[in-house]
Design a protein around this nucleic acid. Structure first.
Lengths: 115, 115
DNA sequence: AGAAAGAGCAACTTTCCGGTTGCCTTTGTC
DNA sequence: GACAAAGGCAACCGGAAAGTTGCTCTTTCT
């Protein structure tokens, strides 16, 4: 089974960025990574929306693989799953690198024509 | 004028991630950074949607500061504006770092209680 | 045992988003 | 000047997404 690498990367990256593209979700993530794993109610008072809204956001983040939830008694504990974030970082770095190279080529071309 | 740094960063970061959270837009960005600045029609045949759809996406990207367009004759040339992407990368790195530190603190706590 | 805390499920509303179609303006070229 | 190429503008549509409210269920605590 052959796969085109760049295309696969691209399709994989979009949902992660989409998951990060909401201020409430970003706030949840920030809270999760400063204060560690915690329950929904604790996460809720970090935001300004309902508990159910936070629940939906957590499921969205879980669908993107950014977060993981485990049951503990009557509480559901959510924790960060940083691998996908690292992947996203790599992807952005790669884009910046490619762009820098393109600019370098362009500059070389210009200087060659007009030294 | 005083500003809360983390909050400002958070609010600024969300629109950039939202802009990156669409496969078609990611494809446009990839095309822009491999093949350099180019017009809408050239960008359109890198995707599988209409020219107007591409135009909308470009405006969305411009609103997020990821891309910039200049008029040249009857063509509109769009080019990447990598600063925001670099900012986004920094933000993700910072989150990962904070998370690692939180994990380290947690581990230290556990080993202290149960050596 | 009974109350309260934590959470899940479902329905509903409102707004936004991706995409298309249709038409008009500007610019370049023969 | 006529025609084609590039693009802007506006209306429209279907679906997703964010958020709320209301109810139920399980677990814990007293």
């Amino acid at each position: 089974m052959r796969r085109v690498r760049t295309s696969t990367q691209l399709v994989d990256a979009a949902p992660v960025f989409a998951a990060l593209g909401d201020p409430t979700r970003l706030r949840i993530i920030a809270r999760l990574c400063t204060s560690g794993p915690q329950s929904i109610v604790r996460l809720t008072d970090a935001t300004q929306v309902t508990r159910q809204a936070v629940t939906k956001h957590l499921h969205a983040l879980a669908r993107a693989g950014v977060v993981r939830g485990t049951r503990d008694g009557r509480e559901q504990i959510w924790e960060l799953q940083p691998q996908r974030l690292v992947d996203a970082t790599r992807y952005l770095e790669q884009i910046s690198t490619q762009w820098d190279e393109a600019i370098a080529r362009l500059r070389a071309l210009v200087e060659q024509d007009d030294p």
